[in-house]
Amino acid sequence: MSDPSVTVVPAFWALGAAGLLGLLASVAAIVDGLLSARAAGAAAGTGWSRPAGEVARLMWQRRRATVAADTLLWRTGGAGLLVMALMIVTVVPLGAWTLFDLDVGVVWFNAMDVLAWAFVWLTGWGANSAHALVGGYRFLAYGLAYELPLMFALVAPAVAASSLNVGTIAAAQQGLWFVTWMPLAFLVFCMGVLAIAMWGPFSAAVAPDVAGGVSAELSGVDRLLFLGGRYALLAAGAAFAVPMFLGGGAGPLLPAWLWVLVKTLALLAALVWLRRRLPVVRPDLFMEIGWVVLLPAVLLQDLLVAGIALARS
């Protein structure tokens, strides 16, 4: 059931949403640039311009070609991450406005995040390079471990709000944010976002020990799209967490749309910051952690949420 408090805006606002996502991804890149500059002991000023410099460099760089590459699949995979992020934000309400008031918005997010399995592996496959393919399979190993906990983490807010519609879920937590009584589901969701974006602890698929893994042979515009797609996925994941766990537009003084942006930016900055705070987990070891620890834990969380929802209704 869709929620009457949400207004569907005309389709041309999709351009605005895309621009906003681009802005958030740029902010994420700048935050990462600042943190890298600080970690390297360079002046903070060099961090600001780092993303812009990288964009300019990649736009200018000549495309590298590999022998017998499957160009169609390679390019599809590389550009796909950005498409995924754009599709995710279509169902995220910005305060009272949404582009796509889908009654099964939560399942939509899930279907879009599963596309990462296809796109990352295809990027690894297409280059016809051993290191890239190893990276692709590392991602699939992560995927087998993180996807089910992530799915069951998405179940918790949907059960609590008795709806799969993102706007209704946001409206259901006007009194109490879901993150307060389903913290484990929130943490597992954030883990899933990090994993989809191959970020921080889940960066083994693009790690230096396999010469950049999936991105080993990417260059020029292809690399720019892939990198931009990773930042955009972080931003889209943070934006989706706001109506799911962080109360949507709820907050004092500021208008609802501004609260959504503020919360998204705060979570996004935290996710970017985590990159330098957590070690990379090995895909083979994480497989068992995902199935033996995270999946039962998140199922218990769902049971608890279902019990509370039943008692309240």
Partner: peptide
């Protein structure tokens, strides 16, 4: 049939990736 449609996409894309795992 929004739920069935979106779940079809979800399952099938995932299945093809799992096929790549089995392939190896």
């Amino acid at each position: 049939q929004n739920y069935v449609g979106v779940v079809t996409i979800l399952m099938m894309v995932m299945e093809m990736a799992v096929m790549a795992v089995y392939m190896i």
